[in-house]
């Protein structure tokens, strides 16, 4: 899965570093283990020397391990801090989101995501955002804990009832990105998916206008029905 946001770029790099370091560590440990077993097995009759390691060896090994841990820690801190940086809206992005990010509220509920855009438009399941624009999703939940996870665009974050969590991203390419809720939330948890459509700023404006018109039409229809007495 190729990253499509500055933050996920950093996450991807750190993941690769971690993968390589872990692979080397696993091969080294198991290599030493297998070597020791093969080299010294079956020498049953010999009476091995009763050697014990001194304190100095332990300090040396401990110091080496500490250095390794420090190196991993520093690399992780650097990349995590980079991944946390808030990107700024680029030239191809939504003009109105230049100074501060486009704020959209994402509400998790069993088992669907609802997105509330500025200007009172909303959509279910599908989030539509303009390309090259900084988006700040405010994650809330109306029932249980959910996790908003679109791995190509952003770090995953939990929507916990009573708290607001934030996801910031800037999609660099138009297209559709799949996501799935990543915290067990009951029966239909597996089907709780979402999709992010990254479109041009003009298409985004059209979408918002269309949603608002649709919502308005639906409301008018309900109001009409109430007036006609069909809905009590």
């Amino acid at each position: 899965m190729a990253p499509h946001s500055p933050g996920t770029d950093q996450i991807d790099t750190l993941l690769w570093i971690g993968f390589v370091v872990a692979a080397i560590a696993i091969v080294a440990i198991n290599g030493a283990l297998i070597y020791a077993v093969r080299r010294y097995r079956g020498a049953r009759d010999t009476d091995p020397r009763q050697v014990r390691g001194g304190r100095r060896t332990q300090f040396r090994v401990g110091a080496l391990l500490s250095l390794f841990a420090m190196a991993v820690l520093i690399v992780s801190l650097v990349y995590t801090e980079k991944a946390r940086e808030t990107p700024t809206t680029g030239s191809a992005g939504l003009a109105s989101a230049r100074s501060e990010p486009l704020r959209i509220e994402a509400t998790g509920q069993q088992w669907l995501w609802r997105y509330d855009y500025p200007n009172a438009a909303f959509s279910y399941y599908k989030l539509v955002v303009p390309v090259d624009t900084t988006i700040e999703l405010g994650l809330v939940s109306t029932d249980v804990i959910h996790t908003w996870d679109v791995p190509q665009l952003a770090a995953k974050r939990d929507a916990v009832p009573g708290k607001t969590n934030h996801v910031v991203f800037r999609a660099d390419e138009e297209g559709a990105y799949d996501g799935q809720s990543a915290t067990f939330s009951g029966q239909a948890y597996a089907a709780m998916r979402t999709e992010v459509d990254v479109v041009s700023p003009q298409e985004y404006k059209d979408f918002i206008a269309e949603q608002k018109a649709g919502i308005q039409a639906a409301q008018d229809r309900v109001v009409g029905l109430i007036k006609e007495g069909e809905v009590p």
């Binding site: 750190l14 993941l15 560590a25 440990i29 283990l33 690399v75 791995p151």
Partner: peptide, 29 residues
């Protein structure tokens, strides 16, 4: 020996998971 080998794989992977940004990707996968 089998246990040492399996534990070494598990805790090394766990080390990668504890890197904060990696956990933002791999948590609950």
């Amino acid at each position: 020996v089998g246990a040492i080998s399996m534990i070494s794989i598990g805790i090394t992977a766990e080390m990668v998971h504890s890197m904060v940004a990696v956990s933002w990707r791999l948590h609950n996968t």
